[in-house]
Design a binder for these strands. Structure first.
Length: 577
DNA sequence: GCCGTTTTCGGCCCGACTGTTTTCAGTCG
């Protein structure tokens, strides 16, 4: 069996690393599997091709040994070393590591001495008080592990949608800014890096005195319990969703380096610190030191300048090549920002499955300062979503004309979100499509097609000269539905050849294309649209920042985005051939 | 296990917090 699935290969390597940790392997060895796993997960190239051409070891962090394991995985679908370990331990062994405060060392002791090989085993052992007498454990640890069992069960994957967390995090940040003596405060961690899912919230603040800030922080009504508190860090859990929030408070002179440290990512930092060492510097949350001499760092820009590289925006700090690019001056000078966006792309009204009228949506877009608004209802095959028949579409054109008459300062563009049918054809005759300003083509059903069929379906659609924007390309729903199987590189090559633009859809659970794929598209010279796919006025506001965040994370500049252009330029640049 | 313009062997990012200890190991980010 062939396994050309980056996520599956990355997971196998990660699991292998975890098993080796439990076995007590050298931590640098287990980390090597971790690094390789992340490298594969974020890989731009086609994995099958790298294997076929024997080029895996060209990847940083992949040597002969791991290359052989990846090759085995891709060619056979299995990994002997991992299968052996899976037989050595219960199948549920790795789930134990999801319990807070239980790492590989303690898990090994629990398994070796008590036979604990699952969360259920752990619960039973704790309740029978068999854990507290083990060396290195105690009554408090036993209680913590028992509480951790509850938490691990409740939180499932443990990662929430960015959109669910971001507003709550911003609210807490505002609260922290109000605390006595706070000079500067910012979000950090994966929320600041705009990861599509996040596990917790980090807030970093500067103040002369720490305790008053902590006391103010934990009084927020959203805080359910205090998990821990030291000299510089307080951790709490929120009432809703068990979300953990860590607050660090430091002297203002340490703010920049602390913010940088707690923004991460871990991989970005590990590489950056190695670079610092090469330059005789030591980098940590407590600052930059040359010998015993602490260097003054006022902000993050100064930190990167000190290391002789371009400033790296938080969204880019993933070790996806940004450090090398920053050293060589190849980072985009400025990523796209909210102020660059002048048109709303992709939206639904009560004509199909939206919840606001055309006029209401247009007025809201105008109030946001936008200059144009594309009307793109569902097409006739999506009857479940109120897709427009030909007659209805023509009737809507009259209303669009009327609203255009009525509203000053914003232009409505006539468009459609056409289904890409099973064979790749669009949902209306060419004679209708050619009358529209904007045609988005999206897949809405028959996700079960295999990779070949799905790839052919999209390639066929791109042959249609009226197909202008590929809408929510992979159809994934984060934490709910996998991306449709397709050969993304091949399709993006075709899109580049045909002049099809790619949507970056800002629905919280779509964020589709995702950032890694956005980079692939940009590398091929493709243009993107930053879109809301809004079904209500609220979603116009909520989705745009999420689409922008995804675009930025994919290294997008204003010049790459078509809806930074005037309505006239926008429509003209969509026209093909 | 990976890596290399002082090295093909001997390093590998760094520190806070906690609970267990009586100087430290494990976990976490």
């Amino acid at each position: 069996m062939k396994l050309n699935d980056k996520a599956a290969v990355a997971n196998a390597l990660k699991d292998l690393g975890l098993y080796l940790q439990i076995k007590g392997e050298n931590s640098f060895k287990t980390r090597a599997y971790d690094i390789a796993s992340e490298r594969i997960a974020g890989l731009a190239d086609d994995l099958g091709q790298l294997v076929a051409e024997n080029r895996l070891t060209e990847l940083e962090g992949v040597g002969a040994s791991i290359a052989a394991k990846i090759t085995e995985l891709v060619n056979t679908g299995k990994l002997e070393a991992l299968e052996t370990l899976k037989h050595e331990y219960p199948i549920t062994m790795l789930e134990l590591l999801k319990v807070p405060n239980l790492g590989p060392k303690k898990a090994k002791v629990l398994f070796d001495l008590l036979g604990v090989g699952s969360i259920a085993d752990l619960e039973a052992a704790c309740k029978a008080h068999r854990v507290r007498d083990l060396k290195g454990f105690g009554a408090q640890t036993e209680e913590k592990l028992l509480a951790g069992v509850e938490l691990a069960r409740r939180t499932g994957t443990g990662r929430s949608l960015l959109a669910d967390v971001l507003p709550r995090a911003e609210k807490l940040l505002e609260h922290v800014k109000q605390a006595p003596g706070v000079k500067r405060a910012s979000l950090g961690g994966s929320v600041r890096r705009m990861r599509e899912t996040v596990a917790d919230v980090d807030i970093i603040a500067s103040a002369a005195e720490v305790q008053p800030v902590f006391e103010h922080f934990v009084k927020h009504p959203d805080v359910r319990e205090i998990i821990g508190a030291g000299d510089s860090k307080a951790s709490v859990r929120l009432r809703e969703g068990d979300l953990q929030v860590d607050l660090r408070v430091l002297p203002d002179e340490d703010f920049a380096t602390a913010l940088h440290h707690f923004t991460g990512s871990k991989a970005h930092h590990i590489k950056l610190r190695s670079l610092a060492i090469d330059q005789g510097l030591k980098l940590s949350e407590w600052g930059v030191h040359r010998g015993d001499q602490k260097q003054r760092v006022r902000d993050e820009a100064e930190l990167y300048a000190m290391l002789g590289m371009q400033y790296v925006p938080p969204e880019l700090r993933e070790d996806w090549g940004e450090i090398e690019a920053a050293r060589e001056g190849r980072l985009p000078p400025r990523l796209v920002e909210a102020r660059d966006i002048v048109g709303n792309i992709h939206s639904h009204t009560t004509w199909s499955d939206g919840r606001a009228s055309l006029l209401e949506m247009a007025q809201a877009a105008k109030a946001m300062g936008l200059k144009y608004y594309t009307v793109t209802e569902h097409s006739q095959t999506s009857s479940y979503a109120g897709g427009l028949s030909l007659d209805k579409m023509k009737a809507q054109w009259d209303e669009i004309d009327a609203v255009n008459e009525q509203l000053e300062g914003i232009t409505l563009l006539k468009g459609i979100e056409s289904d890409i049918l099973e064979d790749g054809s669009l949902d209306y005759p060419d004679a209708v499509l050619e009358k529209l300003d904007v045609v988005i083509g999206s897949i809405h059903q028959r996700y079960s097609q295999d990779e070949d069929a799905m790839t052919r379906r999209v390639l066929n659609a791109m042959e249609n000269p009226h197909f202008q924007i590929w809408g929510h390309p992979t159809g994934r729903l984060i934490n709910r539905r996998e991306a449709a199987p397709m050969r993304m590189e091949e399709i993006l090559d075709k899109a580049a050849q045909k002049g099809v633009a790619i949507e970056i859809n800002g629905c919280p659970e779509r964020l589709d294309l995702k950032a890694e794929h956005v980079r692939l598209a940009l590398q091929r010279g493709l243009k993107v649209v930053v879109s809301t796919d809004a079904h209500s006025v609220g979603e116009l506001h909520q989705h745009l920042p999420l689409a922008l965040a995804t675009a930025r994370k994919g290294w997008t500049t204003a010049a790459d985005v078509l809806n930074t252009r005037s309505a006239k330029d926008f429509v003209e640049s969509l026209r093909r051939g």
